[in-house]
Simulated scan of single mutants.
Amino acid sequence: MAELNRRPVASLWIGDKLHYLNQLCLKSHILAGHPTTLYCTDDVQNAPEGVEIRPASEIMDIDMSIVDQTSASFLSNVFRYKMIKKTDAIWIDCDAFCHKPFPDDMKHIYAGHGFRGALNCGVVSIPAQGDLIDMLLDYYENLPEAPPWFNKNQKRKLERFASDPLAVRIYKAERTAFGPQAFTYFAQQTGDYKRALSPDYLYPVPFQLNDIFYDPYGRVEGHFTDNTLSVHLYTNGTKPWWRKNAPLEGSYADRMCKQVGIDPNQALK
């Protein structure tokens, strides 16, 4: 086991069992020396050795009725900033693989995503005290009838779901309105957008190419640069077949499992 002498990282899991890719990603941070906490809503028994399991309620109560009407990852968008505010840990999604340790002196860790320039929030470190985190938490705790960046078409979508709870209504109108859209908008308001890292730091492979992680002939590392710290595996975009079957031999997912010491066959969907 690596000496855990680097900055702490943390994530949230809603459910009772991790998939092998989640095990892989969490263990990669342990092996890089990051104390790794997984906040859970259920009794998760298959987390890798070294991961500290804590109840999600230490950070916030998870309204499962809202989760049931949206998605398992929906409330993680609120949870991550509450967690940062309380613990000052680096947020990591459970499908973010640690390629290299996060530098101790890098206080702003977030990056543009894909081809559109929006900020993703799959890996986030921002100051626990400051305008950006305050504006994000105020947005979540005092939801407006419509997010301030919504256009006319998005507002019309809101009207179609008028009978739903406000958070659900916003989610149905725009799935990323609690995640990348909110983070991008408020980072622009505070001027923190200009601190964003380039995509190669945290999202070297574009989302649209996520199947490359399972291709034994794909040159995944060809997307990496000397800057690359984290590799997002995009499990939400993965085709169902890959969730139910072990990765093909020689693929990036297979090679990383062997490198880290994860048996995919023990944690398939």
Rank of each mutant, 00 (worst) to 15 (best):
L136M: 07
P204N: 08
R175T: 15
N22W: 02
H223L: 11
K244L: 12
S230D: 14
V123M: 07
K17V: 02
I170G: 00
T225L: 11
C121P: 15
I126P: 05
E58T: 11
L158F: 11
T228Q: 04
D211A: 15
P144D: 08
F74D: 10
D16Q: 03
C121E: 07
L233Y: 02
T70D: 01
D68A: 13
Q45V: 13
I92M: 03
M256I: 12
D68L: 11
D131F: 13
G117C: 05
E145S: 13
M256G: 09
G179E: 07
L202A: 10
A253P: 00
P165R: 04
Y110P: 10
L4D: 01
P165G: 01
G261C: 08
G15K: 03
H34S: 06
L209W: 10
N265D: 12
Y81I: 06
I59M: 06
Y185F: 12
P127L: 06
I170T: 04
V260R: 06
V9D: 02
Q189I: 13
L21S: 03
D164H: 11
L158D: 09
A89V: 08
F102V: 09
A146I: 08
L24Q: 00
A89L: 10
T190V: 03
I90E: 05
P148T: 04
H232C: 03
I59A: 05
D88Q: 11
Y171E: 11
A2H: 08
P199W: 10
G179M: 02
L24A: 02
N210V: 06
S76Y: 11
N120L: 10
Q69Y: 08
M135Q: 12
N22Q: 12
P35Y: 09
T87C: 03
V124P: 11
Y20G: 02
A167V: 12
T41Q: 04
P147I: 06
Q266N: 15
F150V: 13
K27G: 09
N120P: 14
L12H: 00
Y39A: 03
